[in-house]
């Protein structure tokens, strides 16, 4: 197991290297540069700006010096907000987005696993259709619709919660978390239902039931373990996706998170910011995919055997 983890972490190095390299050259192919503006910049000023950000050097030279700085922990100043280092900007948005993503994932898991389990116990009955249909709402109401709709109902109609902000007013974290989590709740519900159905037909569940164990023990202790495997392998990408995909929710609710930086950087051609957020996100993706693989292995006894066997 430990060897497996170390191997995977070692494999992450070429992955990150490839991502940085491809991104570095890819973003420079997109039309328009970081300093293009409606009013054309005076050539002398443009030259000064390009010199300041090393853009006047040959591209390969820029690439090498970027890596040089990166190893020193310096991602360079953002092109759009040049008063800040990219790493400072990321760190300013990260805690907020991570908190948002965490709450959203919690919403998704609680609603999704619950609905999926209940549905799988009595497939093709009202007990199946009703929770699954409720979970479907998250998919039918995309974020850009669900957010304003919840604001309209709970913010203006019932006057229960603030309509925007994050940590400014009491209760303002509720609507963004639900909005972001709702879509994922439907995915979790479907994957859980599917996984549970597979497992509930397995022999060991029948054995457990035959032994006369209470049904909830059978579900929680035996069935959930195997039935959650598809959900768990979805969680890694899901959390990374929540981090990167929080853009719409952050914009709708005026949340100063990372998602806004990530998407805007692409439109601003903010090269250093694109690279910085990409490096950051790809690291997260690698880590979370690893975690969800480890979790899936731990939940699946057969795989566990195989890895410990391979490790020796």
């Amino acid at each position: 197991m430990i060897r497996f983890t170390i191997m995977r972490l070692l494999q992450a190095i070429p992955v990150l290297f490839t991502v940085i390299t491809v991104t570095f050259f890819l973003i420079r192919q997109a039309p328009g540069g970081p300093f293009d503006a409606e009013k054309p910049v005076i050539p002398a000023v443009k030259r000064a700006l390009e010199a300041k950000y090393n853009l006047d050097q040959p591209i390969f030279q820029q690439y090498l010096s970027y890596f040089g700085d990166l190893f020193k922990g310096d991602m360079g100043p953002s092109f759009k907000y040049p008063g800040w280092q990219v790493e400072d900007l990321i760190m300013s948005g990260l805690p907020i987005t991570a908190e948002l993503a965490f709450y959203a994932l919690l919403v998704a898991l609680v609603i999704g696993v619950l609905a999926g389990c209940v549905a799988a116990l009595k497939p093709n009955s009202p007990q199946d259709y009703i929770p699954m249909s409720l979970a479907m709402i998250g998919i039918c109401f995309p974020t850009f619709l669900l957010g304003p709709l919840l604001v309209l109902i709970f913010g203006f109609g019932l006057n229960l919660v603030p309509v925007s902000g994050w940590g400014d007013l009491p209760g303002d974290k509720i609507l963004p978390s639900i909005t972001l989590g709702a879509a994922y709740a439907a995915y979790v519900a479907r994957l859980t239902r599917g996984g549970m159905l597979e497992v509930l037909n397995q022999d060991y569940i029948r054995t457990a039931r035959a032994k006369g164990l209470p049904e909830w023990v059978v579900i929680c202790k035996h069935a959930l373990r195997g039935g959650l495997i598809p959900t768990v392998s979805f969680l890694g990408p899901a959390f990374a996706g929540l981090l990167a995909g929080s853009f719409v929710v952050e914009t709708i609710f005026q949340i100063p998170g990372l998602g806004r930086f990530y998407v805007q950087a692409a439109f601003n051609r903010d090269y250093t910011m694109i690279l910085g957020t990409t490096i950051f996100l790809s690291t997260l993706i690698v880590v979370f995919n690893l975690l969800s693989d480890l979790l899936a292995t731990w939940l699946n006894p057969r795989l566990r055997q195989q890895y410990s066997g391979g490790g020796s």
Binding site: L160, V161, P170
Partner: peptide
């Protein structure tokens, strides 16, 4: 769990 988490402190100041 979700109810305790979500309904922390509602009502507008």
């Amino acid at each position: 769990v979700p109810i305790a988490f979500l309904i922390t402190s509602c009502g507008q100041g």
